[in-house]
């Protein structure tokens, strides 16, 4: 059974208590920001801001909407970051969180490039930098607590529970008030499913949520990597075969052998 969080944009009041609670629990510093004409700040998630609330003004279905979406790592069921990382610094745990280990990372940043949600962030300002992203408060979860952001959320917009149960509940909420929700649970299928799930009154692309397919982004890679052992054996065999055939056809006469002193290019 794996844990998940359901973020209901119809309940989120954009108060950003989650954003601050996350900083507090993770002991992250406040970033220096400026107001550039919106309520949103910091402008993006960073290595020091693991979650932020995105504000979208949208006209949809004949109504003006102001929708708030909390952005953080989605804790994918088939995480690209984990598949990408050469040292296995990212691991999807059975309980749900996708976790990162400072003690393995070498800083190649493939995880950052691979993540379909643009989540892992880097400590660019630090000469000894690490990757940072939402941990799903795995440390709190092991202690029997909810994630800090969920605990702080005043409106019930964030609900922490078993993933299956939350998906069922999400569909119930849609069915109960079909006029209030688009009929889609973001994260149920996206990139093979994620542990953070979203409900919204407007289509998700209007919220700036990446439009991604339902196939895990890792499938093609897995297929390709599965081909490695046969390719290895195959190419080795093929090359040996060719070498043997060519050598036999050429006979000893016109043959070139590497140990032919004359032929390896010793300057005269």
């Amino acid at each position: 059974m794996s844990k998940a969080v359901l973020c209901d944009a119809n309940k989120c009041i954009g108060c950003r208590a989650c954003q601050v609670a996350c900083k507090q629990w993770n002991e992250m510093p406040g970033e220096t920001t400026t107001n550039t004409g919106s309520y949103e700040n910091p402008p993006k998630t960073t290595a020091y801001t693991l979650t932020k609330v995105h504000f979208s003004e949208a006209d949809y279905d004949g109504k003006f909407h102001w929708v708030f979406t909390k952005i953080q790592c989605m804790h994918c069921e088939h995480p690209a970051c984990a598949a990408a990382c050469l040292v296995g610094a990212f691991q999807k745990t059975e309980e749900g969180p996708v976790l990162y280990d400072d003690h393995k990372c070498i800083g190649c940043r493939y995880c950052m490039v691979a993540c379909p949600f643009g989540i892992p962030a880097y400590q660019w300002d630090d000469p000894t930098p690490w990757v940072r992203k939402c941990t799903f408060c795995a440390d709190r979860q092991t202690g029997g607590l909810k994630p800090a952001c969920v605990t702080a959320c005043p409106s019930g917009a964030l609900k922490f529970s078993e993933r299956d149960a939350l998906i069922a509940e999400a569909h119930q909420r849609i069915a109960a008030e079909p006029s209030k929700y688009v009929n889609h649970v973001y994260g149920e299928e996206e990139v093979g499913g994620t542990s953070w799930l979203y409900l919204s009154p407007v289509p998700f692309d209007m919220l700036g949520m990446p439009v991604v397919g339902s196939e895990a982004v890792t499938v093609n890679v897995e297929r390709a990597m599965g081909a490695v052992p046969p390719v290895l054996v195959g190419v080795a065999a093929l090359m040996s075969g060719i070498y043997w055939l060519v050598k036999r056809r050429q006979g000893s006469g016109g043959a070139v052998t590497p140990d032919d002193k004359e032929r390896v290019g010793v300057p005269k």
């Binding site: 601050v20 900083k23 507090q24 406040g30 920001t33 400026t34 107001n35 700040n41 910091p42």
Partner: peptide
Amino acid sequence: NLPWLVELMPN
């Protein structure tokens, strides 16, 4: 006076 809140609404 609280950096976390100043970060949210700096100006």
